[in-house]
Amino acid sequence: MPPDAPSQPFVALINEHQPLIRRVCRLYCQDADDRQDLFQEIVLQLWRAYPRYEPRAKVSTWLYRIALNVAISNLRQRTRRPAPDRLDWHVLEMAQAAEAGYEPSQIDELYRAIEKLSDVEKAFVLLYLEDRSYEEMADILGITQNNVRVKMHRVQDKLRTLLARLV
């Protein structure tokens, strides 16, 4: 067996889910170099955790959990800033339709608004944009589905307020 054979499934996994990891990086880092550093750190932590991955868990749930934890830890290490203000749900719709022809300026506006969210709120936005169910969100974030519903409602309110301020 070649020495790199055990890594082949991991590389395939990363290649398949690279867009997910890059979206996490985009939400938590403004600078392209910082995004690349975060991407590499997430992949490193995934590699370290890979031997303990249990196939009974959904791979995307496992990936999200690690990627979000690394991104939030990384952000907290880089800056210690107060919890930001609010955003708008319209921005989320813009992000979902970004590939359907929204202008780059609108997408940039969306990410500027998302940057104003707290670390945890960004995680909710990301999971929403990925069309994750409340059940999946609860599993990824380690909270109850009812708590997900409450927090999603609060994030929606913040997004509406932030988008109104941006206009």
Rank of each mutant, 00 (worst) to 15 (best):
R48Q: 12
N69I: 08
V70R: 05
P55C: 10
P84Q: 11
A83E: 06
R56K: 05
S73D: 15
L63F: 04
P55N: 11
I66R: 01
Y64Q: 02
R81D: 04
D85V: 05
Y50M: 06
L68G: 00
P55K: 14
R52M: 14
A49D: 15
I66M: 03
K58H: 10
P51G: 03
D85Q: 04
D85S: 03
R65L: 00
R81T: 09
Q77C: 07
Y64V: 04
P84Y: 04
P84H: 04
R65T: 10
R48C: 03
V70N: 00
S73C: 06
P55Y: 08
K58D: 13
P82R: 08
N74D: 08
V59K: 15
K58Y: 07
R80K: 11
Y50K: 06
I72R: 08
A57R: 12
A71H: 07
N69Q: 15
T61C: 04
L75W: 04
P82S: 06
Y64C: 05
R76G: 07
Y64I: 06
R65D: 00
R56Y: 00
P82L: 06
A57I: 12
S73T: 14
R76Q: 13
T61L: 06
R48L: 15
P82C: 02
R52L: 13
E54F: 04
R52F: 08
A83L: 08
N69D: 14
D85P: 05
R76A: 06
E54L: 14
L75G: 08
W62K: 10
P84L: 12
A83I: 11
L75Q: 08
V59R: 15
A83D: 05
D85L: 04
A57V: 12
R56W: 00
W62F: 14
T79S: 09
L63D: 01
N74R: 12
L68F: 04
P51S: 02
K58C: 03
K58G: 08
A67H: 01
K58L: 11
Q77W: 10
A67M: 01
R76D: 06
Y64R: 10
R80I: 09
V59F: 07
V59Q: 15
D85G: 02
R65V: 01
Q77V: 10
W62Y: 14
T61Q: 07
R52K: 13
L68A: 02
P84T: 04
S60D: 11
R52W: 07
A71E: 12
V70A: 00
V70L: 02
A71G: 03
N69P: 06
R80S: 14
Y64L: 10
Q77A: 12
R80A: 15
R78E: 03
E54H: 11
R65W: 00
Y50A: 13
R52I: 08
